[in-house]
């Protein structure tokens, strides 16, 4: 076990503990029919406590009906460096959008 909390006053680390709870990202479903949306992050020692902390921190005013928590370090994200190669190629595929197509006058429900 690493150091416990007892500091002798000379410890340069005033937290009294060199250990840290990991960071978790919190996703809240505001109401049924909606997706979970990222709400923020918090620290917790494990997933069970992270869920509970999320409940107390992010749904104090009835903001949610369901919660997800994910270890921040488990999230893989695209980097800004990849932005051009990831997202720009999608910009010119205008035929993916319905407005690309001409519809003869009078044709409905299309």
């Amino acid at each position: 076990m690493a150091s416990t909390g007892s500091t002798d006053g000379k410890n340069p680390d005033p937290t009294g503990s060199g250990r840290r709870w990991p960071l978790w990202e919190v996703f809240v479903r505001a109401r049924r029919g909606l997706s979970h949306v990222h709400a923020g992050s918090l620290h917790a020692p494990d997933a069970e406590m992270a869920l509970r902390n999320a409940r107390d921190l992010y749904t104090r005013r009835g903001e949610g009906v369901s919660l997800w928590v994910v270890r921040s370090s488990d999230i893989e994200a695209s980097t800004p460096d990849e932005r051009d190669s990831f997202f720009d190629p999608a910009a010119d595929k205008i035929y993916r959008h319905p407005t690309f197509y001409d519809v003869p006058e009078g044709v409905e429900h299309l």
Partner: peptide
């Protein structure tokens, strides 16, 4: 012991 717990105990 931690800020998250301040919030929980207040609840």
């Amino acid at each position: 012991p931690e800020l998250e717990e301040d919030v929980a105990l207040a609840n």
